[in-house]
Design a protein around this nucleic acid. Structure first.
Length: 273
DNA sequence: GACCAGGACCATT
DNA sequence: AATGGTCATGGT
């Protein structure tokens, strides 16, 4: 299918550290959309999506948040002088990810680097795909599948000390499937309290889960890159606690804090902030 | 061989 | 409430 996509940048969206399950294959990206392996390619204002019926166009638009007017964000970045260079990232959008996959991936992400997170993602997908009755497509394992696994296996797949965290979080979600819907219906504060109570999920990972998995756009994840950029541009390079920066960002950018954060993070990592 | 990576957790102050 | 040490693993 072909989708008209002005003000969208597929590469920046996929490579901005919000998703870990995509690979590059000569000129196009391959990822799982709605449980199907999908080839994606952008040429100018056109996005080409393989592996889906044209009727799925609406879901794809929703998945990439294509119908959101980003001018509010560009206005903010223009007003925030030190953040102006981040306007080069125009077209970067927040993907609406599967809640469980986002939760699992960002448990894995703690004190870790993106390349290794991608490797662990692949290990998990391949291992659990291989032991399914119907091997089918290589999609991310469900909470139930991981819950019926073992810590030692997760360690062998590269999770290290995070293995018990993911295992126990998976067991909780598998035993209480309604909790995800409960988080979706809650406001930011209550949702964060619930998410942060999972093993392996602290304040930063919770914000990532809420932003990428539940579209709580007032979430403001503060990792080392966001912390550096914020210290540099808003705190005179002085050392500041993450909680302070988090409160500052939420108060300053409100319901747009999540989008600002994504441009902050990728801008800082790219060396333009 | 130390240091870092989209931090969380626990003990101590 | 705030700070410091520790935790696997692979890349630089």
């Amino acid at each position: 299918m072909k989708i008209y996509t002005p003000d969208f940048n597929l590469q920046k969206t996929i490579e901005s550290g919000q998703v870990f399950g995509y690979t590059r294959e000569n000129g196009h990206f391959v990822g799982n959309l709605f449980g199907r392996p999908t080839r994606l390619r952008q040429e100018g204002d056109e996005l080409f999506v393989d592996g889906h019926e044209p009727a799925a166009k609406k879901r794809v638009r929703e998945y990439f948040d294509l119908d959101r007017d980003l001018n509010f964000l560009y206005s903010i970045l223009k007003e925030e002088v030190p953040l102006r260079p981040a306007l080069d990232l125009r077209g970067l959008r927040l993907i609406r990810q599967d809640p469980w996959e986002a939760m699992a991936c960002f448990i894995i992400s703690s004190n870790n680097n993106i390349k290794r997170i991608q490797g662990i993602w692949k290990n998990l997908v391949q291992y659990f795909a291989k032991r399914r009755r119907h091997p089918g497509s290589e999609v991310f394992p469900t909470a139930k599948e991981i819950a019926s696994s073992h810590e030692s296996i997760l360690r062998e797949l590269g999770l290290g000390y995070r293995a018990p965290f993911l295992l126990h979080s998976a067991k909780f979600v598998a035993a209480n499937p309604e909790t995800l819907q409960c988080i979706r219906e809650a406001g930011y504060e209550e949702a964060k309290q619930r998410v942060i109570s999972f093993p392996g999920i602290g304040p930063k990972v919770a914000d990532c889960v809420l932003l990428y998995g539940f579209q709580k756009y007032d979430a403001f994840p503060v990792d080392v890159w966001v912390l550096r950029a914020m210290r540099k541009h808003y705190f005179r390079n002085r050392r500041v606690a993450e909680a302070k920066v988090h409160a500052f960002g939420q108060k300053r950018w409100g319901k747009h804090a999540g989008y600002v954060q994504q441009y902050l993070f990728f801008g800082a990592k790219s060396g333009i902030l």
